[in-house]
């Protein structure tokens, strides 16, 4: 409609919030998180806030959701660092770097603490208040899975791995000796089965749902835990500023609850799908992460310098001491 920058269209003190993520499955943690957001916001506001949740229905591509948020066609979205980067905010890409966080607790301390606050300021400032961070969600922890188990770094030598083929992620894997390969997510099942790639990397719920662990090149899972993933839970900042103070408080509270629900649901699914993979014949091994961390360090340092977030990286390192 014509009055998208006016938040209260009918002037009756009520607002409607369009919340969207890109996953179509109803039991995805994103959906759990947004439904929680809706529940709390609607209850706490005594009906002055209405939340409409879209599970993939207004965009299955994260880039489209970001564009919609900026334009005002969506009010609250979930998006990964890679796509945020394309809005011209290069600093957010730090969160897609491998071995940035050492454990789930390390990640929690960072995003819920000073690091998270600083990132929030950067995003808000660089987007001219188009994006305001309501909190940090997660899409689980990513591991290697492939045709053979990894026992040491040397085992990566010459192994083709489906991952990002550019940037810091690619640089890291190249340094381990692996060969980053590009193949679309939809074609990966077939690719693993037909030997197009030797291996891939992702979080349990994602690749187990796609049955990648049942293929010959997806059977061995090594818990490399190279990426404790971050997802940005964003609201349109300009609209947020126009809401009444009570409504703003309700939204922030609902966001807090939704963060809790989403993270719990992700952790639960991580366990569930790991068990499912093992039950269905996948073989899981753990590995000493230290050698990988040492490979990642210099790459991370250079990368942080390049995107101008050396102070943030330092803060993150300090938290782990």
């Amino acid at each position: 409609g014509c009055n998208t920058h006016q938040v209260d269209a009918d002037g009756d003190g009520k607002i409607k919030i369009i919340a969207a993520h890109n996953q179509t499955s109803p039991d995805n943690p994103y959906q759990t998180g947004l439904l929680k957001f809706k529940e709390v916001a609607e209850k706490e506001s005594n009906g002055t806030i209405e939340v409409e949740v879209h599970a993939g229905t207004i965009g299955t591509e994260e880039s489209q959701l970001v564009e919609k948020l900026q334009l005002g066609a969506a009010d609250v979205i979930v998006v990964s660092p890679g796509f945020m980067t394309q809005t011209g905010i290069k600093e957010v890409d730090l969160f897609s770097a491998p071995y940035l966080f050492n454990s789930y607790d390390h990640w929690l301390q960072a995003v819920d603490g000073e690091v998270g606050n600083k990132m929030e300021e950067i995003i808000n400032e660089k987007s001219n208040n188009s994006f305001k961070v309501l909190g940090y969600w997660t899409a689980g922890v990513r591991h290697y899975y492939g045709k053979k188990p990894i026992e040491s770094v040397d085992d990566f030598q010459g192994v083709s791995l489906r991952t990002q083929t550019s940037g810091v992620v690619s640089d890291f894997w190249t340094s381990t000796g692996a060969i980053p390969s590009s193949i679309s997510w939809g074609e990966l099942y077939q690719g693993l089965q037909q030997d197009v790639v030797d291996s891939s990397e992702n979080a349990y719920p994602f690749f187990v749902q796609q049955a990648h662990h049942t293929t010959s090149n997806g059977k061995y899972i090594t818990e490399t835990a190279h990426d404790y993933t971050t997802r940005f839970f964003l609201i349109n900042g300009e609209k947020f500023d126009q809401y009444s103070e009570e409504q703003q408080e309700v939204i922030l509270k609902a966001a807090k609850e939704s963060i809790k629900a989403e993270r719990e649901s992700t952790l639960l699914q991580d366990e569930e799908y790991k068990k499912k993979a093992i039950d269905e014949g996948a073989i899981v091994n753990e590995i000493d992460r230290q050698p990988f961390i040492e490979i990642a360090r210099p790459i991370l340092n250079d990368f942080a310098k390049e995107i101008d977030v050396e102070d943030l990286l330092k803060d993150i390192y300090e938290l782990d001491k």
Binding site: Q86, T87, K90
Partner: peptide, 15 residues
């Protein structure tokens, strides 16, 4: 309007 909103967004592979 779209051009001005998204002018500074970058390509994924060629920033």
């Amino acid at each position: 309007q779209v051009v001005t909103e998204f002018w500074n967004y970058t390509w994924a592979t060629i920033p």
